[in-house]
Design a protein around this nucleic acid. Structure first.
Length: 568
RNA sequence: GGGCAAUUAGCUCAGCUGGAUAGAGCGUUGGCCUCCGGAGCCAAAGGCCGCGCGUUCGAAUCGCGCAUUGCCCA
């Protein structure tokens, strides 16, 4: 924030001993005077004095006019700002930046690549799979918000054993429909468990696929297309989209791998095991542990294994990615990815930056598509949307049904996306139906609700039916209430939140920011009448504040992939 | 057996690179619409921040050990 820089400059100019020191500015706690403070522990030594003395020295300096008062409190210095001056410049800033408020445009057009979702083509995705896609999709939105040119990739694992089993299971049953895939998939796995011959046949099909048998390739392709199309339709309901689909089968053999094999051979990391398979000994290229030391690249018959194709694919992505190269992966892929990254690094290339997330668990235990014990994303969305529909119908009985449905759709998406995104990725989430279906408190709809309240005020203020393109009231923004101040200082932090969220990266942090702003807005809304304000000046200031808050929330919700309806 | 991650209020989770009295929501208890949308607001109760050592002016935050849970490897 520019304000901090100004203060820092003032301090360094007057106390040259502190050149290069780190200043920890932070909001003042409730019980302390001032708007924010500076802790003086860290640099007191540089002034050859105790922290309270250092604070005293700093408090005695002359600061720019926006600082109204400076006082020392033990080892802290507390600054009080000219609230109206600060508010005016902040609101001006928000309104002039509009949809870009909060962005520093660090990307400046740099191309980046991001792979996410990449679900195995089988049944309708469950909510655990959605976690991958939502984290990836929101990261893509965040990167775009920061000005990066994002290319979203989806890796289609179109040659797993499961597809072979599905092919056998549905043989002669005519066209497979996506609605029965889960059923057939569970049945096929059950059958494979009890019938070794059946499983063996599936395996043989896979072998043929690996060797490029055209007939099998066609069968597999047909099944994969049906599964993928069905899965993408569900994902699209949540707002997930992709720029490019890369099929595993197109990396069956790949010229890029010549270089990899040569490198491994040169490091003496390649050998043939007793089954005739081509194996890498990762310890030869720097693997530290015994676990995961060996990885198979090719079968005895010369066909490639999953890791082989994945290395080829990763190399292709590296060629395409000019800036960052991200991948979102479940926690079960941690060691696998470490192995992959090591091989890529040994080639002298930079592996993708992986973002791991932990599983969503049900209170009864874990979800398994194979066993059919899942909460399907589509069911969850249906349920949430139908509950939202009830509320909308109750609130707006005369609204056209189509419009009601559209609003309910936005709320449903808001609820689902927020529920999953608001938890840090490296934590297991316990999924609870009641909690996930709740629209009160910490939820997406709560934030959307704040936006509709603002929209409602603005409609009444302008007398117009739409709230787009309203000019901000002229003049300075005066701050007359603590609730206004608490809201505005929070808005000013948004820029920092966006940067932190991107650097970590951590989308959940932005969900919290949005919630925090919405909560402060609600407090403001309750304490400060806008349209019925005491004076015209206060009314105009509060309208301006409302507009700034709405813009900030819309920007944050946009990153989370949530729309803000004007009515709900 | 080994590796990675997690552990904060009854439950579900925040707490950003160590800083002033650890915060929300749900649930519980009590208030708030003659006033901009009650999907809301205000207040109360509720904490050995898993346990133990260590690092330092200062630890929920960093390090080590242990316990528990999730995931992975042979």
């Amino acid at each position: 924030m520019k304000l901090y820089t100004q203060l820092k400059d003032t301090i360094e100019k007057n106390l040259p001993d502190l050149a290069g020191a780190v200043f920890d500015f932070q909001p003042s706690p409730e019980n302390q005077p001032g708007d924010f403070g500076l802790a003086c522990f860290r640099f007191a030594k540089q002034l050859k004095t105790a922290p309270p003395k250092a604070a005293e020295m700093i408090a005695a300096l002359e600061f720019p006019a926006i600082v109204e008062k400076v006082e020392q409190a033990g080892p802290y210095v507390n600054f009080t700002l000219d609230r109206s001056a600060f508010a005016t410049s902040l609101v001006d800033n928000v309104m002039s930046e509009g949809g870009k408020f909060g962005s520093l445009n660090r990307g400046a057009g740099t191309p980046v690549l991001l792979e996410h979702t990449s679900i195995n083509p089988n049944a309708s995705p469950h909510i655990g799979r959605a976690r991958n896609g939502l984290i990836g999709d929101s990261l893509a939105r965040l990167l775009k918000f920061e000005g990066y040119d994002v290319d979203v990739h989806y890796y289609v694992n179109d040659m797993g054993k499961q597809i072979g089993l599905l092919a056998l299971q549905t043989e002669g049953k005519g066209e497979l429909s996506f609605d029965n895939v889960l059923e057939e998939y569970v049945a096929a796995n059950e059958r494979a468990k009890n019938d070794p011959a059946f499983e063996q046949k599936g395996f043989e099909l896979l072998m043929k696929m690996e060797q490029g048998d055209p007939e099998v390739k066609k069968t597999f392709g047909g099944i994969v297309d049906i599964c993928l199309a069905g899965q993408l339709e569900v994902l699209a309901r949540l707002g997930l989209g992709y720029d490019r689909f890369d099929r595993e089968s197109s990396f069956l053999s790949d010229p890029r791998m010549d270089e990899v094999m040569a490198m491994l051979k040169e490091k003496d990391a390649l050998f043939t095991d007793e089954d005739g398979r081509t194996v890498v000994d990762l310890q030869k290229i720097g693997w530290k542990r015994e676990e995961g030391r060996y990885i198979v690249l090719m079968r005895a018959n010369g066909s490639s294994m999953y890791m082989y194709r994945d290395i080829a694919y990763t190399l292709e992505k590296i060629e395409r990615a000019e800036g960052h190269n991200y991948i979102v992966l479940g926690e079960d892929h941690k060691m696998y990815f470490e192995q992959l990254a090591l091989i890529v690094s040994a080639l002298g290339k930079k592996p993708p930056e992986a973002i791991f997330y932990n599983y969503i668990l049900l209170s009864e235990g874990k979800m398994s598509t194979r066993q059919g014990t899942v909460v399907l994303l589509s069911d969850f969305l249906d349920e949430v949307t139908s509950r939202a529909r009830e509320k909308v119908t109750e609130q707006w009985p005369d609204m056209p049904a189509e419009e009601q449905a559209e609003i309910a759709r936005m709320i449903g998406i808001g609820a689902v996306r927020f529920t999953i995104l608001s938890v840090k990725p490296n934590k297991n989430v316990i999924f609870d139906w009641d909690e996930a279906l709740s629209f009160t408190g910490d939820s997406g709809p709560y934030i959307q609700y704040s936006c509709t309240r603002i929209a409602s005020i603005l409609r009444k203020y302008t007398g117009s039916d739409s709230v787009e393109d309203i000019p901000r009231p002229e003049g300075a923004v005066t701050v007359t209430h603590d609730a206004e101040w608490s809201l505005l200082t929070r808005l000013a932090l948004l820029e920092l939140d966006v940067q932190t969220a991107l650097d970590q990266p951590n989308i959940a942090l932005l969900a919290t920011s949005a919630l925090d702003i919405a909560r402060r807005f609600s407090a403001f809304y309750n304490a400060c009448p806008v349209l019925n304000a005491d004076s015209e000046d206060v009314k105009k200031s509060r309208i301006a504040i409302c507009m700034a808050v709405r813009q900030a929330l819309i920007n944050l919700l946009g990153i989370l992939g949530i729309e803000a309806p004007e009515r709900m």
